[in-house]
Design a protein around this nucleic acid. Structure first.
Length: 480
RNA sequence: GCUCCCGUCGUCCAGCGGUCUAGGACAUCGCCCUUUCAAGGCGGAAACCGGGGUUCAAACCCCCGCGGGAGCGCCA
């Protein structure tokens, strides 16, 4: 049985990079009929917060990445929050001490810092050997620690040998021996260190495939040594490359929106975000671009995950969101757009239902003009405000024929028997035909007169949605 | 500095020794459709980091350079 996990630390919003890692884990699990585990890595007491954890879970659910075992729903291998597993880590750490594969250290942080500084000064790579740390393990020190109530940290004795990782994405990775010194696995505070906790958890939770960002690739060396020390079976590893910003450096806030939450607020659909993220590193065997989650699950394999870093292309995401918006029925679009409409204040929440018919038509009209849901406010604005075009913009009305056409248009609209789309179309076409006006400037000016904008939904829809009163009013004040 | 990863159009990917005069998508440019803009349709321009090997044959394999990224914490 395949078991994978996504293990974020609750120190902020879910990042698009994290979302992609979660997605790959999810796709792999579902493709293999396996189990997707969510584990919260909250061993950094300083930065972890419950709010972050909750927002993480909320965002994952919004994306549709549902987990089978996790902190909120439990499962057979829990608990799924590292802060609730502290006794396990202590037991596991001291099991290693007993076997002589780890040891308590009585060094002071300042002493370590000094050693580190000296090594860097000598242009050596900073690493500590068993001997350098053990020299502080004196009876005096032990006594001092006991008196002051300090606990020693536990160091892992790193074997100075070569390790080989057969990564499912990177291939064969050889870590030369002697490049990494002993490292802390258990803090004096009773809290384990990441590299140790992941190994313990992945092993105990029976994770079969570790799919994660390749910023963890070099950490894997330490983890391999730990698995070996415990003589535990190794999971498969698959290291996915990083997502970079447009300048080629690791994607961060200074590149703009990076939190999934930001994209939700801007009116991105979870489907398009998921689809885009999947394509950032993975490719469908038939090179499909627009691809539903079910199809991604069916077609997913680690073999098709690229090993080179990817630059986040917000332009392509925008295009893709537009594609998904256009696939929506007007009803579905309205449902998703309602929060954004309410935010504009044009329609009160309690009036949405009453205006449903009008809103649906409006959705139909704006549907292929938007790429983000938060554009609905701007698109709808001419219907709820009374924008007045500048005289400059309407200068083309100085043309006699155009001005005659508008006069005629006003009269015909005024006397139109019913305000139906078909009627409106024929009136407009008839006016163009009868006055022999040049269509392009005519339509453009009409749009300006009604909305004070150069762009927007189809004109017939604008006219119809506006209603006769507003249309006559806005046409009537033109100086023609 | 040391260790590890990566290197095909501006960007994401396809390519896994001959089928490559290198394919798709976004962006870009042009044309068509149309009721302006958009959406849609059609077409164009655009890339194998450099140098050595291996081979009858290399974008694909090996080595060296160069460039980019990551890790080297009692952070995760």
């Amino acid at each position: 049985m395949v078991r994978v996990r996504f293990a974020p630390s609750p120190t902020g919003f879910l990042h698009v990079g994290g979302a992609r890692t979660a997605l790959f884990n999810y796709l792999f699990a579902k493709n293999q009929n396996g189990v997707f585990v969510l584990r919260i890595e909250d061993t950094d007491l300083e930065r972890s917060t419950l709010e972050s954890e909750q927002s993480l879970l909320r965002t994952m659910k919004w994306l549709g990445l549902h987990w089978d075992e996790g902190p909120d729903i439990g499962g057979p291998k829990g608990p799924y929050r590292q802060s609730e597993r502290l006794d396990i880590y202590r037991r596991m750490a001291y099991a290693l001490v007993e076997k002589g594969k780890a040891y308590e250290a009585y060094v002071l942080p300042e002493e370590l810092e000094a050693m580190r500084g000296k090594m860097l000064e000598n242009k050596e790579s900073p690493r500590y050997s068993h001997e350098t740390i053990a020299q502080y393990d004196t009876p005096e020190r032990r006594q001092e620690f006991a008196q002051k109530g300090w606990s020693p940290v536990v160091y892992f004795k790193m074997p100075q040998k070569e390790y080989v990782l057969n990564d499912r994405i990177k291939g064969r990775v050889v870590f030369k021996g002697g490049t990494t010194g002993d490292f802390v696995i258990f803090r004096s505070t009773g809290i384990p260190v990441y590299n140790f906790a992941v190994v313990v958890d992945d092993a105990l939770m029976e994770i079969t495939h570790v799919i994660r960002g390749d910023d963890h690739l070099t950490n894997t060396l330490r983890q391999l040594a730990l698995y070996e020390a415990y003589q535990m079976p190794l999971p498969e590893f698959a290291h996915v490359s990083m997502i970079l910003g447009p300048d080629g450096s690791r994607l961060s806030k200074r590149h703009g929106a990076t939190a999934v939450e930001n994209f939700r607020e801007m009116g991105y659909l979870p489907e398009s975000l998921i689809n885009y993220l999947a394509l950032l590193g993975w490719s469908h065997p038939q090179e499909n671009e627009i691809c539903a989650l079910n199809e991604m699950i069916r077609a997913f394999s680690l073999e098709r995950v690229s090993s080179n870093p990817a630059i986040f292309d917000s332009g392509k995401l925008l295009w893709m969101n537009g594609m998904y918006i256009r696939q929506l029925t007007p009803e579905a679009l309205l449902e998703k757009a309602v929060p954004f409409i309410i935010e504009t204040g044009y329609i009160a929440p309690e009036n949405v239902d009453v205006n449903k018919k009008w809103l649906l038509e409006a959705m139909k009209a704006i549907q292929n003009g938007i790429h983000q849901l938060d554009e609905v406010g701007e698109l709808l604005s001419p219907f709820f405000t009374d924008p007045i075009p500048t005289a400059e913009a309407l200068r083309s009305l100085e043309d006699d024929r155009l001005s005659a056409a508008f006069k005629l248009l006003y009269e015909r609209f005024d006397s139109i028997p019913s305000w139906e789309i078909n009627e409106i179309i024929s009136v407009i076409k008839a006016v163009v035909k009868d006055t022999k006006v040049n269509p392009k400037p005519f339509y453009h000016t009409l749009r300006l007169a009604l909305t004070a904008r150069d762009t927007g939904p189809e004109l017939v829809h604008v006219v119809h949605l506006l209603g006769r009163n507003k249309v006559l009013n806005r046409l009537g004040r033109l100086e023609v």
